[in-house]
Every structure is written in structure tokens, then in C-alpha cells.
């Protein structure tokens, strides 16, 4: 299985452990990630807040460059996915815009490759049985809550409902295949505060705090997520919450289950250190 790969800025910085674990897991599962050559930032919330042209033109450059790979574009970050999906939708639905962009980048837009998010690929292109067959260290006894946040599964007009926008199931399906015990909870699709992380930390503390508290109420051992912004917000806004809840990328848990090397390096990057909890569960 070959995909073109768009890591996005955070997978080289604040979410470097997501980047490492994504690449390790994909390699172990025979998923060939071909990084888009010289990709640029998608523009994230800042571009669409201030500049509608840049908000679409920046990710369009990446979509154009990805065509060289000739396969669906996979991106681990939900915010990048949101922007790529919006740009792709615009290219498909507005022919005047498409012509403008084709002239801008001197490239024809074929539209054969679709932007997709990493959990979609891991959960839907790979059968749970195939995944379970590769598990070496089942995550027995690990109670998890799956956290999707916003743009991974919303809005349905752009995601084409690859999972239910109100009750997504893909991460639970993966986690069950890994042997974990996904627990139902109420906060799976609530927003963490996302782009207000720095400028309105007070708001993010309230929103993320409520989600982390929800995980505690569900007696979960950890929160499982698939977005660098969600992870950063949930991991960093736990002041006053007890006990603290490790927030793991789904690829990190897959790394444990597949018994991939170099894992301790990933976990060392977390603010809430997951290693004591993993040790307790015999999963370190």
C-alpha cells in the first residue's frame, strides 16, 4: 500500500513522537509513505481566519506536488487534513478557481489522489483482522477513551463521512484489534480549543480540562488521539486534575502492540509521562 505523505509542521516539532511512531508503524504494516517533496505549511487556522486566498492556495501547492506520487495523500494532523480537504473540495467544485490555480502552479489538477487522514487509512484500508494478526504484545487490560476532536471527522461535507461525525468508531475498532478495552465516554467529539492554545490559554484550559476530567470519570488509563494539536492541548492543560491522564497517539499504542523498537524515545516527549501507567499495565 503506497500513499503520498504530508507530515505537516508539528510532526517535525511539538509532535515529533507522532511523526516517529507514524513512520515506524507504517513501515511495520507495509504501508509505504512517500513524503511530498518540499511540502509547505497548510496555513492552518491563521490562514483561513485572515486570508481566504492563502487559506486555499497554500494547501493547493501541496496537493499539486503530491500528484507526482500518484496515490492518496495521508496526513496525521487533523488541522492539516481540514485544510487539504477544503482545498481539494474547492478545486473539484469551482472550475474558475481550479484554472487560476493550475496557471499559478503550472500544473494540471487531475484530482486522482484524495486527502485522507492517517486513522482513516489505518482503520479502513487495513482490516482489523490483518492488524490483529500482527499484534505481538496485546494491550490487554488497557482502558482507553478515543478522542477525535473536531476536524478529523467534521464537517461531513468535506470528509464525505468516512466516519460518523457524531459517533466515530474507527479508533475503537483499531484499539480492539490491538487487544485494548475502549470505553464509551461523552467527550469524543468535543473540541479541545485548538488554535486558541497560546492566545487564550484560559479557554483551552476549560475545554481541554473538561475532556481530561471526562476521561478520569470514565476510569480510562489514557486518552487516545490522532491530532498533534489535540494532544498538545490535552497533555499540557491538566493543572489541578488528579490523577493526570496520559494522552497517547494511536500510533504509539500500535507501536507497543506491534512491539516496535525505539518506543521509549517517543514516550519521553510527553508532558504527562505515560511510562508509569504503561509499566503498571505491563506494557512499557
Amino acid at each position: 500500500m503506497k500513499y503520498s505523505y504530508y507530515p505537516g509542521c508539528t510532526l517535525h516539532s511539538t509532535a515529533i513522537e507522532y511523526g516517529w511512531s507514524t513512520e515506524a508503524v507504517c513501515e511495520a504494516l507495509g504501508i509505504d509513505l512517500v513524503e511530498i517533496e518540499d511540502w509547505n505549511c497548510c496555513g492552518a487556522s491563521s490562514a483561513h481566519s485572515l486570508d481566504p486566498h492563502l487559506a486555499l492556495a497554500l494547501p493547493t501547492r501541496d496537493l499539486m506536488r503530491a500528484q507526482a506520487v500518484g496515490a492518496d495523500i495521508v496526513m496525521p494532523c487533523a488541522a492539516c487534513y481540514g485544510r487539504m480537504a477544503a482545498a481539494d473540495h474547492k478545486m473539484r467544485s469551482d472550475s474558475a478557481w481550479r484554472k487560476e490555480m493550475e496557471a499559478e502552479f503550472q500544473t494540471e489538477y487531475i484530482g486522482a489522489a484524495r486527502p485522507r487522514t492517517l486513522v482513516d487509512v489505518l482503520g479502513n484500508d487495513l482490516s482489523p483482522e490483518a492488524l490483529a494478526a500482527k499484534v505481538k504484545r496485546p494491550l490487554n487490560g488497557l482502558r482507553t477513551v478515543s478522542y477525535y476532536g473536531c476536524l478529523l471527522i467534521r464537517p461531513p461535507d468535506l470528509t464525505n463521512r468516512w466516519d460518523d461525525p457524531e459517533h466515530p468508531v474507527v479508533m475503537d475498532r483499531i484499539l480492539k484489534a490491538l487487544g485494548a478495552e475502549p470505553v464509551q465516554w461523552a467527550h469524543a467529539v468535543e473540541c479541545c480549543g485548538a488554535s486558541l492554545a497560546l492566545d487564550r490559554a484560559d479557554v483551552v484550559t476549560v475545554l481541554s480540562g473538561r475532556i481530561v476530567q471526562g476521561a478520569n470519570d470514565a476510569e480510562a488509563d489514557c486518552i487516545v488521539c490522532a491530532c498533534p494539536l489535540c494532544q498538545a492541548n490535552l497533555d499540557s492543560r491538566q493543572k489541578g486534575i488528579s490523577p493526570k491522564v496520559p494522552v497517547l497517539y494511536i500510533t504509539e499504542l500500535m507501536g507497543i502492540a506491534l512491539d516496535l523498537p525505539g518506543r521509549s524515545k517517543w514516550f519521553a516527549k510527553h508532558l504527562v509521562d505515560p511510562r508509569p501507567m504503561l509499566r503498571r499495565k505491563g506494557l512499557e
Partner: peptide, 18 residues
Amino acid sequence: WMCVGCETCWTRCPNGIA
């Protein structure tokens, strides 16, 4: 300025307004 663009409103709006 406080809108974070999470698209929850668009997902649920009975009149399809983002």
C-alpha cells in the same frame, strides 16, 4: 475572534450554514 473553526456548527445546522 473567539471562533476556532471547529465546524461543529456547520455539521449540525438545520439550514446548512457554516
